[in-house]
Design a protein around this nucleic acid. Structure first.
Lengths: 251, 251
DNA sequence: CGAGCAGTTGATGAGCTTCAAAGGTAGTGG
DNA sequence: CCACTACCTTTGAAGCTCATCAACTGCTCG
């Protein structure tokens, strides 16, 4: 049995399922660990880590954190895809990132979350109470060092997205997006050429600062240029990586 | 005598002037310290800090770091305004931030800088060799902790800018920008109501993802709405903060 | 099989860019 | 001190990209 929609896990006791028995809860087996801040904890000390975290599953469309809610937890994504977004009062939405294994949610200096996060696919998360995390950092400084490195990476990704949003055309944005997803999948050891597009066209549009219609037209353009082929709406075969890469920079 | 243009300070021995005698080089006197990562170093240990850094001045339009160059240093801005930007091969530019006292430049996990930085006003900087910085972090973990906090802040600012670039109209962007500058000036203890606009219209345009013409027209619109008044082109009086704030969110 | 939603395609229009020129402002030299 | 020059900013007119509105297709799931 699975709950189809989860409430925000940020502050209230979540109805999200605890980890079922058919999957390991051991940090030693965690696929995401090498890419996450947990890589800063020595193998021999993983039990300390396990005592601090709660393993959670969230179904697609389930909320993980809500903008403005008290930031009591930090999360590590260990499987699946999460979208992180900000809203304007009139409903305009900007997705500021798609998170995957190894990424974190909820690094906040302030009291409350600066954004909302929601599962795109079935997602698996490790939840750290902020206080326990502080203790872990005290005990394993390299864990905090590692988080700084991840934050620096996030920052670089954010800056690339700013360049995209401020200065690229629709076609260039989509080309950039497809290569970004492909590269990331490769880094995570997942299939990188038929690129997986688990998110909807609306999500892609809200990430690229466009509308679904424009995203759809851009897909058609790339198809007509023989740069990609859509196996299904959620799987894109890249036919000419070089030409696509040229496109991302206006070539 | 002052050199009007400085080469990049990132890797080569800079022709930027060392700090002249009429200004203190002591960290104890540093105005930016409370807002910077140096706040993580106890007062009694400031001499260690002083031995590690080089104090630099850069004139307007002088380069500080160049995208792609080896990232051998990190910088702290202690006075003045710096613009940080990325370029596309065809010259399109996106300014990803205006930095002021307390902000850092050059947090990079990778080997080279991910962006360029250039002085807008006369700028004062502390330059940290990456190696010495590592030693400082070893010695003063709270300094690295503080840097993590600053990076988290940067990230939040970046995310706000993504929302602006992806989803706001020209008028909303300018309103957001003016309030942002005003708030920041206040936090730094500088005059916040006639907002200082040290950067050119072109710089503002490249920050907001617009053209100079559109920025100029947006200024005119805000003037006509009686929300602001331009004392000079580089000083904006905010006449109705509330209405302006409503505008930033589409109200 | 039909309902409903996601995605695609088409037609029109708005907002911003581009191209062009005039108005200001600051710095320079007589 | 003022005139001249050069650049920055503002304003105007036309064009283009993307948004909006609308219809259609195809897929998924009772």
């Amino acid at each position: 049995m699975t709950t189809s929609f989860s409430p925000s896990l940020g502050s209230s006791p979540p109805s999200a399922r605890a980890c079922p028995e058919d999957e390991s809860r051991l940090c030693a087996d965690c696929i995401a660990r090498p890419w996450s801040m947990c890589a800063g904890v020595p193998d021999s000390e993983l039990m300390t880590l396990e005592r601090a975290v709660t393993d959670l599953h969230v179904d697609p469309r389930g909320a993980i954190v809500d903008e403005g809610e008290p930031a009591q937890h930090m999360f590590n994504v260990t499987a699946g895809t999460v979208k992180v977004y900000k809203l304007l009062p009139d409903g305009r939405r900007q997705i500021i990132g798609f998170l995957m294994a190894g990424d974190f949610i909820g690094l906040a200096v302030r009291q409350s979350y600066a954004y909302s996060a929601e599962a795109v696919t079935p997602v698996r998360l490790c939840r750290f109470p902020r206080k326990k995390l502080e203790e872990l950092f005290e005990r394993y400084p390299s864990m905090e060092k590692r988080l700084l490195g991840l934050a620096a990476n996030e920052l670089a990704v954010a800056q690339d997205l700013m360049l995209l949003l401020g200065r690229k055309t629709a076609k260039e944005r989509l080309a950039t997006f497809l290569l970004m997803l492909s590269d990331r999948a490769r880094r995570l050891g997942m299939p990188s050429n038929p690129v997986a597009l688990p998110m909807s066209r609306t999500d892609i549009a809200d990430y690229l600062g466009l509308t679904t219609e424009t995203v759809s037209r851009a897909f058609t353009q790339l198809k007509n240029l023989k740069l990609i082929r859509l196996e299904t709406t959620s799987q894109a075969q890249i036919l000419d990586t070089e030409a696509l890469r040229d496109l991302t920079e206006g070539g």
